[in-house]
Design a protein around this nucleic acid. Structure first.
Lengths: 346, 346
DNA sequence: CAAATTTTGATTTACGTACCTCAGAATTTC
DNA sequence: GAAATTCTGAGGTACGTAAATCAAAATTTG
């Protein structure tokens, strides 16, 4: 039988009220008595029954998710996953609120975080923008004791408790390795090969990091692969299509394309319209309806993905654990860089 | 406020006892009254508070995990993950027992399942062996109403409730695609290339399926890649080393090796000792200390992995859900085929 | 219509914890 | 040594559900 507060009271020779005072850090206990109770707790190996405690407190964990109102498929699916969690929330004693903010706007994010700070929820998850003012509010939230998880995009060296997202440098490196290996041979002769990179914006940290990882691996391991200047398509399908089409026209021998941002619909359209001598090798990010179809059709060769559902569930688990002062299972919360070929599509 | 049983009683105009009878399917309620209560439940959108119910019942979920006493790294880590779950079990109201059975022994598995059947636990997870007698006990367990999850190795078309493991055909296909793409070029000239396959035993379903997927993709997409007859190393390091070393000696131009079983320590040793004209391209399964080191050193080029921790946690979640008659989140329970290059090692 | 049976209500206890009150004991302060 | 203060004990209520008892009401049976 698991020991209860009653057992502690019996062993320590004190009353239930005193045990309660010690357990919940209430005042009015002499240190001698406190010691006796603490000894009993340790000797019995008592652990509070969280379910019973939450029932007694009729507690619900109120969490806020601040999400950018981006219209690319990935952000939409992230939204959906959070909404799914909201739907399940009553069963899990959580009360999740979604706050939408304009994308790429540090000021709006800061304002949203400040509102949150005033509400004092049990935890906050947000898609970070790497800016000093964001870091500053984060610090204020930490001082207010509000657990914080960054989602998808991190705020390194800040006061966030946890980052629920992938290692973007590693993702870029992986893309670089795949590109190098897939290219070597037919496309990459003695003369080398040319590769284009399509990004959303170099102002966003994830994109910078992916490019960094990609470039590093290519430079180190595949020196005869040449990377063209980055195309910034702002994660916009139309703009992306134009830029890719133009690049393909200008540079006839593009052997590979690494699309490290969103806006893949435009890329795919440009690829389908193009009819060069040889289809370029394409590696893209995020498995969406369009990238999945392109992968199945052979227009895209590999997709690197981060599982939005996993990220959201992980964020909630971590916030709950932090709210309760419990440890997190690092292995469970590590967000994988999924690699999809057409053969292992889920 | 979430509706409670008291609210139902009030709305339906009956007593708490009657509500309880309806909710828990106890006899002694006229169908008219039952109808009134059910209407109230629906109109209020009542959902039972599982935590409170479990507290009242002082319920613990007793689960049994039947694991083969294999000594390869993957099975050892699977064991460890289950032991980890046992350690956390008190906090999660679960009581997990591990039963070890000799590997590759259908009779022993059947005996273990029959013991389980007698105990009537809240659920069973086991590493299946695809044999008619196993299928038969599984059916008896199902009829006894005991939720069942197969772990790592499935028992298809049987009465199991869920399979917590990867799609091995897809894994084999993925390995085939990677092999084909990585090979094309330097190693795969006009004349074609030769590839060796190292398996544990063709009697095991997972291994057969991986080989099937691999062979299919190679035959369809890379017709000038030739697959040598399968080496069966029984997942034994010593035997595997001998077989690989001999194969490398006999066939000088082996361009790639697909190791689809365990026993990778032997493979790695053989590769390190060999010094042919050109290192073969190696794709292996399961990320362990040795495959990880080999990947970092460039002895192995890619590792396909199934996350044992995820499999165990998923099995427990599913068993719990089945025990409570709740739906499972398919997306959360899908076990991924992780692909690791040296660039995305966790 | 009375007796037997089924259905229902009212009430209680329990699960393990939180939180409250109030009285009494122990200690410190003056 | 009395007064003030600090501790501690005893007891209760609550959270939402399960499960039990027993009496009263409604229904069916003979």
């Amino acid at each position: 039988m698991k020991p209860t507060v009653h057992d502690i009271a019996k062993i320590a020779g004190v009353s239930l009220a005193t045990v309660d005072r010690v357990l919940n850090g209430r005042p009015g206990v002499r240190s001698v008595t406190r010691g006796k109770v603490e000894d009993a707790i340790i000797s019995l190996g008592y652990v509070r029954d969280l379910a019973a405690a939450n029932l007694a407190k009729s507690r619900t964990y109120s969490f806020v998710f601040i999400l950018p109102a981006n219209d690319n498929s990935f952000m939409i699916s992230l939204h959906e996953e959070v909404r799914g969690a909201v739907a399940r929330s009553s069963a899990e004693r959580t009360d999740i609120r979604i706050v939408d903010v304009p994308p790429f706007d540090p000021g709006a994010l800061v304002a949203a975080l400040e509102t949150v700070l005033a509400e004092k929820p049990a935890g906050v998850a947000f898609v970070a923008i790497d800016a000093p003012e964001v870091r500053a509010v984060a610090e204020r939230l930490r001082q207010a004791g509000i657990p914080m998880v960054t989602l998808v995009s991190d705020l390194p060296d800040s006061s966030r408790d946890h980052y629920a997202g992938i290692d973007n440098i590693a993702a870029g490196r992986t893309a670089g390795s795949l590109m190098g290996r897939f290219l070597s041979g037919p496309l990459l002769g003695e003369r080398g090969a040319t590769v284009a990179v399509l990004a959303g914006s170099m102002l966003v940290r994830d994109h910078r990091e992916r490019l960094e990882g990609f470039s590093t691996v290519i430079a180190q391991a595949y020196p005869n692969v040449h990377i063209l200047p980055v195309l910034e398509g702002r994660d916009d399908p139309g703009l992306s299509e134009t830029m890719v089409a133009e690049a393909l026209r200008r540079t006839a021998d593009i052997a590979g394309i690494y699309s490290l941002g969103a806006g893949n619909r435009g890329l795919i359209r440009a690829l389908q319209k193009a009819h060069g001598p040889r289809r370029p090798l394409v590696i893209a990010h995020e498995l969406t309806a369009s990238t999945r179809a392109a992968l199945a059709d052979g227009v895209i060769d590999a997709v690197l993905n981060q599982d939005a559902g996993h990220e959201v569930r992980s964020a909630i688990r971590v916030l709950k654990a932090k709210a309760d002062g419990l440890p997190v299972l690092a292995a469970q919360e590590r967000i994988r860089i999924d690699i999809f070929l057409k053969d292992n599509l889920p």
